[in-house]
């Protein structure tokens, strides 16, 4: 049963990793303290829910729609609001994005009410059995897509010209501007990319997690926990952090009880903040 719990944790953790990787680009790399990250995950979940119930679109297909819509939404939010205060204190980042988060949460509540919504897929109740271990199909598909998204994101940041520009800005934006990088446009792009990844994370979460307007708050804190645990500025670290939090949460809820998964997550977070604030893979990559 221990092995089964670990596997469940890894499957869940891969989705957490995607949530964290989006924030890792925004906060870890661009240094924008985005307290609305979870709300963008929520937006991705609602997009997927709507496409599924109205058009019957399979959630794993609507990941593309989530990506594009959240990318545009993220760039718009950056251009209209965050851009004006991006050079100001962290406190203003936090307050402004918390305000954006409040707007998104309550917009969702106006449209969808406070009901906990879930979607029912034909294949989400089937398990794959390998040597006595059960792996849920929906989890497995989400896991595979999450891995692909993570790999693509890593490749984009490490290997492409734009990715190099993003990393250059995170190291020294004045020098980046001097070497011909359009800092505003690249930052907007990076912010949009982070939000788009959050949207995809929402899509991948929906088959296994309900959505209601308040899930955003929980995912925001979770995303920060993962980024800090993995190490600031390390996209790979966020992936590891997400997997680790997934395993910790599953172990705690199996051996101690459901509510302990949150308790243990918060305690691990506080301990990391106190004793290893640079995180597991801090400052080593990206």
């Amino acid at each position: 049963m221990f092995l089964q719990t670990i596997i469940n944790g890894l499957l869940l953790g891969a989705l957490y990793a995607i949530v964290g990787m989006g924030l890792s680009i925004v906060f870890g790399t661009m240094r924008i303290v985005n307290f609305a990250h979870g709300q963008f995950v929520m937006v991705g979940m609602y997009i997927t829910y709507t496409l599924f119930t109205v058009f019957g679109l399979d959630p794993y297909v609507s990941a593309i729609a989530s990506f594009i819509l959240c990318f545009l939404l993220g760039m718009a939010v950056y251009r209209l609001a965050i851009h004006r205060i991006v050079r100001q204190s962290d406190m203003n980042h936090i307050l402004l994005t918390a305000g954006v988060g409040l707007m998104l949460t309550n917009l969702a509540q106006m449209v969808y009410n406070t009901n906990q919504l879930t979607i029912n897929l034909s294949y989400s109740h089937h398990d794959l059995v390998i040597g006595g271990l059960r792996i849920n199909i929906a989890y497995l598909i989400s896991f595979v897509i999450a891995s692909v998204v993570a790999a693509l994101l890593f490749w984009f940041i490490m290997k492409t010209e734009t990715g190099r520009a993003i990393r250059a800005i995170s190291q020294n934006d004045a020098a980046a501007a001097l070497s011909g990088i359009h800092v505003t446009r690249t930052t907007m792009l990076a912010f949009g990319l982070g939000i788009a990844v959050a949207g995809v994370a929402g899509t991948l979460l929906l088959p296994i997690h309900y959505v209601d307007p308040s899930v955003g708050d929980a995912f925001s804190l979770l995303a920060f926990i993962i980024v800090v645990l993995g190490g600031m500025g390390s996209i790979l670290g966020s992936a590891v952090g997400g997997l680790l939090i997934g395993v910790i949460a599953q172990l705690a809820s199996y051996y101690l009880g459901q509510s302990y998964s949150d308790v243990l997550t918060y305690i691990v977070f506080l301990l990391v903040l106190l004793f290893k604030p640079s995180g597991l893979l801090g400052r080593s990559r990206v």
């Binding site: 205060i85 402004l96 707007m103 949460t105």
Partner: peptide, 25 residues
């Protein structure tokens, strides 16, 4: 058509915070 008036009030609340931070910190 606004749905939950409470939610709309909080939506404006969020907007107000955004505007205050941007224009009147």
């Amino acid at each position: 058509w606004l749905g939950d008036p409470n939610a709309f009030a909080f939506f404006l609340y969020g907007l107000l915070i955004v505007l205050v931070v941007m224009f009147m910190p």
